[in-house]
Simulated assay, not measured.
Amino acid sequence: MEGIAGLTIALVVLGLMLLVLLSWAVPVGLWIAAIASGVPVKLPNLVGMRLRKVRPASIILPLISATKAGLKLDSNGLEAHFLAGGDVQRVVNALISADKANIELSFRQATAIDLAGRNVLDAVQMSVNPKVIETPRVAAMAKDGIQLIAVARVTVRANIDRLVGGAGEETILARVGEGIVSTIGSSASHKTVLENPEAISKTVLAKGLDSGTAFEILSIDIADMDVGKNIGAALQTDQAEADKRIAQAKAEERRAMAVAVEQENSARVEEARAKVVQAEAEIPLAIAEAFRRGEFGLRDTGHES
């Protein structure tokens, strides 16, 4: 009896383990939910997902959402995107949002955008609700030398067709900043810019700055503009100071040269004077030597009587 009881317990435990393993390998509940939602999926396909290390719920639940939204997707495409490292739920949500907003977005295009590292759902939402990005403070100088510091708000909408390979927000901000600098720099007076700031927006917007980017610029608005330094006057002051220093340096150079010439002339005078003194000192010696040799008499001196 004890042997039969032990065998029964072992069989019960083994049966429970097999049941747990079977429920893990064959997600019957998920299969029933899919069938009830009108998603044609077979149990062997779910088992195959387990064997391919794909969580069935990550494929079936988004597929149910897509089917309920009226989209025609298949589990093989979703599973392939999952295995490629994509976000299946985000792609499906983006497709549903695009369909509701009448935005043309194919499954192939959505998966390509997702695998490229961009948030395809955010892109669809940005196509529906444009985003406003603000430039940093951009400083530029008008032709009259006055500096202006401007801040612009750029309203952009995602361009679905250029999301793969298109430049990002940083490029938009850089181009807008460059356009602001160019427009202010070409203005004759800073007062003209202050009186008509929308001219900057129109000029910059007309340059087609969104070319090659993942966005479409809808508007550019100057949010703030301040008057900065009088750079022209500062440059003139610096130039005058530089000219002054150059003139002082040249004057000092000329003075030093004059002093050097004067010292050289003084040295030459002293040298000549020394030679004269030396020559005068040698005259008595020469006369004495002449007397000694008898080559020089009183007649030669003019004292003969």
Rank of each mutant, 00 (worst) to 15 (best):
V154C: 11
A158T: 11
E280F: 08
N45W: 07
V269R: 15
A251T: 05
I35C: 06
N129S: 04
S65Y: 15
G29F: 02
A150S: 11
A98H: 03
I4P: 00
K229N: 07
A242L: 14
A279D: 04
V132M: 08
R118S: 01
A140K: 07
E289P: 03
D122K: 11
G29Q: 04
V151W: 06
M1R: 05
A234P: 14
L14C: 11
D161R: 04
G38Y: 10
A290W: 02
V20A: 10
E304G: 05
L11N: 05
Q239M: 07
K250P: 02
E170H: 10
T155I: 12
Q278H: 08
L218K: 06
V164I: 07
V154K: 11
V41Y: 06
E79R: 03
L83G: 00
S106F: 11
S75C: 12
L235Q: 00
G228F: 03
Q248I: 10
K275Q: 09
I184Q: 00
L205P: 14
P130G: 01
V92S: 02
N93V: 09
I103S: 08
A274C: 12
V91S: 12
I32L: 11
E79K: 01
A274V: 15
G29P: 04
T192W: 14
M141P: 12
E271Y: 05
A150R: 14
R268K: 03
E79W: 00
R268F: 02
A272G: 07
P56R: 00
L22D: 14
G3H: 06
E195R: 07
V54R: 02
R162Y: 09
V54A: 00
R299I: 15
R137H: 06
A152E: 15
V88D: 01
L21D: 03
V54W: 05
I220Y: 12
K275L: 05
E270L: 06
K42L: 12
L63W: 00
I220E: 05
A223H: 09
E280K: 13
I200K: 03
I222F: 09
D122S: 10
E295Q: 10
I200W: 00
A101D: 10
L205I: 13
E104S: 12
P27G: 08
V259E: 14
